[in-house]
Design a protein around this nucleic acid. Structure first.
Length: 220
DNA sequence: TTTAGGG
DNA sequence: CCCTAAA
């Protein structure tokens, strides 16, 4: 099994370059190819900077560190000693889609998280993209029940799908509304038929208006 | 537990 | 997907 999100901060403390070199290599072997390529570049760049700094300040050597990240940034990186960057510990983050990266190629140098990740990636559920069939079922249910009864939507359209909670359905609806608004080329994953997206927009507009009317009644 | 939204 | 304040 190849973990897609690396183990939580595998190397927190400092250690010499020799001890972490193999460490890092092992971890990188588990990374998807795209990330591995970026990682090599990142490490080379950071190492160069670290070497440069060390020459003038006789600091400690950098250490390898990889960990599971969130929000699109898969943690891969090289932690640098406090003095390495002249500031605080930093690590190179690789962003699959290069949105946040500032060094091109989706790379970004960000502060090394000090406090333990609040989430045990161990408990995180495996990703399960909604199929078009599921989207169809969701849209159908929302068209009839509305946007504020996810528990009912779950019971009526996903009763057998034990891995789809009503919160998941609510979240999916949110992304569907968003998907319907952005340009097709910005969408990812299995394409959702345009007609289905139109129904999403329809239902969304309808139920939003409906909720507004309800509110108006309560106001007067 | 369910709703509702931000993370 | 996760986290969680409110209801």
């Amino acid at each position: 099994m190849v973990p897609t999100t690396l183990i939580h901060c595998l190397c927190r403390g400092r250690s010499n370059i020799l001890a972490t070199k193999s460490n890092l290599t092992e971890r990188m072997a588990l990374l998807p190819h795209s990330m591995r390529v970026a990682a090599v570049e990142a490490l080379a760049a950071i190492r160069a900077q670290a070497d440069s700094n060390r020459r003038s300040k006789n600091d400690e050597t950098p250490f390898g560190c990889s960990y599971g990240g969130r929000g699109g940034s898969k943690g891969i990186g090289l932690g640098l000693g406090l003095e390495e960057c002249g500031t605080k510990p930093m690590v190179v983050h690789y962003h699959p889609h290069g949105r946040v990266g500032m060094h091109g190629g989706g790379l970004a140098l960000v502060p090394l998280p000090t406090k333990p990740r609040p989430l045990d990636i161990t408990k995180r559920r495996v990703r399960r993209p909604f199929s078009v069939v599921e989207v169809e079922a969701l849209v159908h249910a929302v068209e009839k029940l509305g946007t504020g009864r996810w528990r009912d939507v779950k019971i009526q359209a996903f009763e057998q799908a034990k891995h789809r909670t009503y919160v998941d359905l609510k979240d999916k609806w949110k992304t569907l509304v968003h998907t319907a608004r952005i340009a097709p080329h910005q969408r990812r994953g299995e394409p959702v038929p345009q007609e289905l997206l139109e129904r999403v927009t329809r239902a969304h507009t309808y139920w939003t208006t409906q909720a507004a009317k309800q509110q108006a009644e309560l106001d007067c």
